[in-house]
Design a protein around this nucleic acid. Structure first.
Lengths: 344, 344
DNA sequence: GTGAAAGCGCTAACAG
DNA sequence: CTGTTAGCGCTTTCAC
């Protein structure tokens, strides 16, 4: 109805060839030594009729789309939502658009999504990969597609990635609890073979080993249904009454944990101290405020998109970079030793 | 490298024409009376070489993409993130993919995004529209594009939309505060000419008028930078010390509000009662738990995607539906009158 | 029953 | 400096 103007139309109206128009529109007028005057006439008409090149046809021809596919684990998770947002903005500023999707940590679905992105000729893939997706990523890499992973990485694959120092972060947080005098420190997290989770568990175990304390690890299956998280959590806490401090492996499980703690009527930190991975409003606003390991969200997003833009830049020398950022342990009342507790 | 197989390749390998292959692949073999045997040979080969039609070329030809564009105000906002997630899943189940983007309530950006979606030949548009986008939406509608709005709608445009009963919800929440004995009830919200905001303000004002109380409205400019929200908020609360109850217009402003209240050392609900629009973990976990107007997120998402699918179905009779859902006022301690306060 | 050929809108050799 | 032409990979009319 309105979107009918094509490059041919404007060429015809001006009685020139569409090639010329194409050159002008793609800024190659100088190079092709097209007369200033013609250039202006074309640009004027383009404005007038509101001509917009059909990017689908363009992509079909060039193989480029200026679109980057972003696959997060779950867009409704604050950590991923914030990162996605920042990446989207940075990409936008650089002339790229972002398409996001949630993988749900589902390998099959991720596979389909990758295939959809591929069909759509996205120029690059930013992925927080689920387990079991190695082969597909290898194939992507094999056909020269730019791939950047974040939050976690795949062991056997040599790709760019940006992650945080999960092991050290968790070591540090655990040590903090030890220093505050806690002795029965549990780690509650999602059962997962993903690198970030494994590293967090490792950090926790090492810290306890160094302190000559016994680890108490509870792994819960990931599920979108909150009740299926809170129930086992509740059972665990009821059973292990000796626990005096809990580390939560992610923001989501931390949130669920706080709900359970509240239901059980436990006092924080008097009955049980709490530290969670990831930091967000829920923890800051909680009473008492909850100590949390804050990931550097802005820096993460920045590095991810910079890496991608670099890979997308044909002139840049192809290298693969692995970036590890450090986190920040925000200590709040929830993990202070009771006797030393102070108002924030 | 691996994605090189085209319909021509498979036609050549089998020494038949690409037309035939196309027919078979699109399930028109019967109709075209192509021999069973040929059909099978083609399908076998397709499997073997892992041929996947290039959907870009397909879209270019057919104008269909099986992709729905979803534009939310801000994906990092829990309300929009949850809805996006639900819509994505429902679409996925129905063979559609979702591309999301954040508009940031920026008209110019939204315009670009719409244009990108259009270029990409998305089949439908789901939009939480910013102000000033009327013309663009009209144009979309004019060229027969399916559009469904949610969360708010544009006054002068007749499109399908699904919203909640903002005016009544806010009326109801205000009335609740009145009944609890509060007399100086402020509404703090984003300054916006969007329908949902205007309706919320209307509901608030009407309730106070009915109760013969004076409204106290504070509108804050929307900004992604949190400090630019908390500062004016802080100033407002410091100045108007008579306030005994506050309604917050959205989850985001509610969260900021709680931070400010905490900074000021005000007790909830003793010093000031609180009710917020939107309900999520921050409010549930807050001490005391914060009363909130919960939007029916699942139902919203369901209706939005159903409406869209119906519009996408060529056989369905074109109608425009306006759906208004009701909210749920979850009363918690933050808005109980001090003297009556009870543990939840 | 099957194939040739014309495009969808665009880019880029290659000629002039 | 500008135009001709050949595709990108697919669908679809129209002939055979």
């Amino acid at each position: 109805m309105s979107k009918k103007v094509s490059i041919v139309d404007i060429a015809n109206t001006l009685n020139i060839s569409k090639t010329t128009v194409s050159f002008i529109l793609n800024g190659r007028a100088q190079e092709k030594r097209i007369s200033e005057e013609l250039v202006e006439r074309v640009q004027k008409l383009v404005k007038e009729v509101g001509y917009k090149p059909n990017s689908l046809a363009k992509s079909l021809r060039t193989g480029k789309s200026n679109i980057i596919g972003l696959m997060v684990e779950d867009i409704s998770n604050p950590f991923f939502a914030s990162i996605a947002r920042l990446i989207e903005n940075r990409a936008y500023e650089n002339g790229y658009r972002i398409i996001y999707c949630s993988t749900d940590n589902d390998t099959e679905r991720t596979r389909e999504l990758i295939s959809m992105f591929r069909d759509r000729h996205v120029d690059g893939y930013i992925i927080s990969p689920p387990e079991g997706i190695e082969e597909d990523v290898k194939e992507l890499l094999g056909s020269g597609q730019p791939v950047v992973m974040f939050d976690r990485y795949l062991q056997d694959i040599d790709t760019d990635h940006v992650i945080v120092d999960n092991a050290f972060s968790m070591y540090n947080a655990t040590q903090h609890l030890v220093q505050q005098g806690y002795r029965n420190i549990a780690l509650i997290t999602f059962s997962s073979a993903q690198s970030q989770m494994m590293d967090r568990v490792t950090g926790y175990k090492n810290a306890l080993k160094d302190a000559k304390l016994k680890p108490l690890l509870k792994e819960i299956d990931f599920n979108r249904n909150e009740a299926l998280i809170t129930e086992p959590l509740m059972a665990f806490l009821k059973k292990n009454t000796g626990i005096d401090a809990i580390l939560f492996g992610t923001d989501h499980i931390g949130t669920c944990g706080l709900k359970v703690i509240r239901q059980l009527g436990l006092k924080v930190p008097e009955d049980v101290a709490v530290v969670s991975f990831d930091d967000y409003d829920v923890f800051k606003l909680h009473s008492p405020p909850v100590s949390a390991i804050a990931q550097p969200i802005e820096a993460l997003a920045d590095h991810v998109i910079s890496l991608m833009l670099k890979k997308l830049d044909a002139n840049a020398t192809p290298t693969t970079q692995k970036i590890t950022l450090s986190t920040n342990l925000n200590i709040r009342e929830s993990s202070l030793q009771h006797s030393k507790a102070v108002a924030e």
